[in-house]
């Protein structure tokens, strides 16, 4: 067995060096994990950056609850995805959709999200249009008994938060177009006296008033889209729209955007 003379010294030195390096890493690692130092990290807030909007891409940001998320749509596009596809078909401008909606979000959660999630703050500044649906989860929980007195109570608070949300959005991005999708009534069958219907109409009316105070905000009504035979446009849970239902919402939004686009 012939062995070259330098093999053993080379092997011995390199493996010994590797071994010592790894042992020191091990000791360093164990001591760092077992005796961690007190954290001294501070939250970093994203700086406002007007360059973000100037990236040449037409950005649609979707914010809010399950309606904007697209829950119930078999293609999982939702109305936001439909709008994106429609805008994309217009001309050569590159379009992107950032969907940050979360199932079950309330106005309070959305407000926190806008104030605190850095990724959301960045995308608000990138956005050319914001699609927004929020509020229904403040009013009632689907599947649970709906008490009109409770709905009326939570409405006042939720409405003032809507105002805060719009305020925060327009502060971050002054020229963004904000499209608020109004509430519809999916529970007509179990609301024969129309008590909830009255409250939902009241909600829509109040939000429309907020929208009127801001030139960027448009209220998009959907109440009539899911009328008496509205179940045809609802998904299996009898609550969220289905693909066709979302298409109808998207069509409304496109009417607003088209008008903007041609200006």
């Amino acid at each position: 067995m012939k062995t070259s003379r330098w093999l053993w010294p080379l092997l011995a030195i390199s493996s010994l060096a590797a071994c010592l390096l790894l042992i020191s890493g091990l000791i360093y690692g164990i001591s760092t994990i077992l005796y961690p130092a007190e954290s001294n990290l501070q939250r970093v807030n994203v700086e406002r950056d007007d360059q973000l909007n100037e990236d040449g891409v037409w950005t649609i940001l979707a914010l809010g609850d399950s309606i904007t998320k697209g829950t119930g749509d078999a293609t999982s596009k939702g109305y936001a995805g439909q709008v994106r596809d429609a805008v994309d078909a217009w001309d050569d401008t590159e379009v992107r959709l950032i969907n940050m909606a979360v199932n079950g979000y309330t106005t309070e959660q959305l407000h926190t999200q806008i104030e605190q999630q850095n990724g959301v703050i960045v995308s608000i500044q990138q956005a050319d249009a914001i699609l927004l649906s929020i509020g229904v989860n403040d009013l009632y929980t689907p599947g649970e008994e709906v008490l009109p007195e409770d709905v009326a109570d939570s409405m006042t608070q939720a409405l003032s938060r809507i105002e805060d949300i719009v305020q925060a959005l327009t502060e971050l991005n002054t020229d963004v177009r904000i499209l608020y999708t109004g509430l519809y009534h999916p529970l007509r069958e179990i609301d024969p006296d129309g008590e909830l219907a009255a409250l939902l109409r009241e909600w829509n009316y109040q939000v429309m008033q907020v929208a009127d105070a801001y030139p960027q905000v448009v209220f998009v009504p959907t109440y009539d889209l899911f009328g008496d035979n509205g179940t045809r446009y609802l998904s299996g849970d009898h609550y969220h729209p289905n693909e066709e239902g979302y298409k109808r919402i998207a069509a409304r939004i496109m009417q607003v955007l088209e008008e903007d686009w041609h200006e």
């Binding site: 891409v57 992107r96 950032i98 850095n118 990724g119 960045v122 990138q126």
Partner: peptide, 14 residues
């Protein structure tokens, strides 16, 4: 559709 890591990470979180 974005190269901004903050946006894509936020989307993953959501």
């Amino acid at each position: 559709g974005t190269s901004d890591w903050r946006v894509s990470l936020q989307q993953r979180i959501n």
